[in-house]
């Protein structure tokens, strides 16, 4: 019996040293995740953000480097969107105000269009800066956008509206030139991008700016 304890003691000691190293040395993402009310930690070092080849609303190229050195919130949508996207952007306006009163750094708000066909850089600039002069918007080719949304878990489909009839087609299907109007069904999560330029957290709908601000404060302190 005593022999067994003699043998076990160093093992237990070593095990506690190792776990202490992991708890203190490495960041406890699980503990952070449990403390969050309106978001989920999505950071996965094995899944880096894909190479971005986008264009900003001033017709300037936008790459992964433009996300580095500061926090950002990325949001996918389309300007024809009459409800979900303006609601999301208004939530971002509210979030910015709350973060300002908390004297916290404001993440850069970046709207990426899922509808590059209609959302030219000019349309995007008019749209996002209407909500806040500091908001940014990006576009790109439809093929590239359809690729980069995947690691975010963003999904959309196209609803073709031909007067009375509606038909839903996939994001990869071409939009017929004779179609009168179309809208998009899409996920409306927001994504917090870390200063390393990687996806850090996802903020699902419905968005609650107060809770989002509390989570962002915790994430900033953790990072």
């Amino acid at each position: 019996m005593s022999l067994k304890i003699k043998f076990l003691l160093p093992v237990v000691f070593a095990a506690s040293l190792i776990s202490a190293f992991f708890l203190l040395g490495n960041k406890d993402y699980l503990k952070l995740e449990r403390s969050l009310k309106a978001s989920f930690v999505l950071f996965d070092e094995n899944k880096p953000l894909p190479k971005l080849e986008l264009t900003d609303f001033n017709n300037q190229p936008f790459s992964n480097n433009d996300l580095k050195g500061h926090w950002s919130i990325v949001f996918f949508g389309f300007t024809f969107c009459p409800d979900v996207c303006p609601t999301g952007l208004m939530d971002m306006v509210k979030l910015k105000k709350i973060l300002q009163t908390k004297k916290l750094q404001n993440p850069e708000i970046i709207f990426i269009t899922l509808d590059p066909n209609r959302d030219t850089p000019e349309v995007l600039k008019d749209y996002v800066t209407y909500f806040d002069k500091d908001f940014k918007a990006l576009t790109g080719t439809k093929e590239h956008i359809n690729q980069i949304i995947k690691p975010f878990g963003t999904f959309y489909e196209v609803v073709l509206n031909d007067g009375e009839n509606q038909k839903t087609v996939s994001a990869d299907d071409p939009i017929p030139s004779d179609i009168k109007t179309y809208t998009l069904n899409h996920t409306a999560w927001m994504y917090l991008i870390s200063p390393d330029g990687e996806i850090f957290a996802g903020l699902p709908t419905p968005h609650n700016p107060s809770l989002m601000a509390e989570d962002i404060e915790k994430i900033f302190a953790f990072y």
Binding site: C81, D83, E157, V159, T187, W189, P204
Partner: peptide, 10 residues
Amino acid sequence: TVSDGKVMKM
């Protein structure tokens, strides 16, 4: 506007 799981549909 309805949420079908994650997707917002109008």
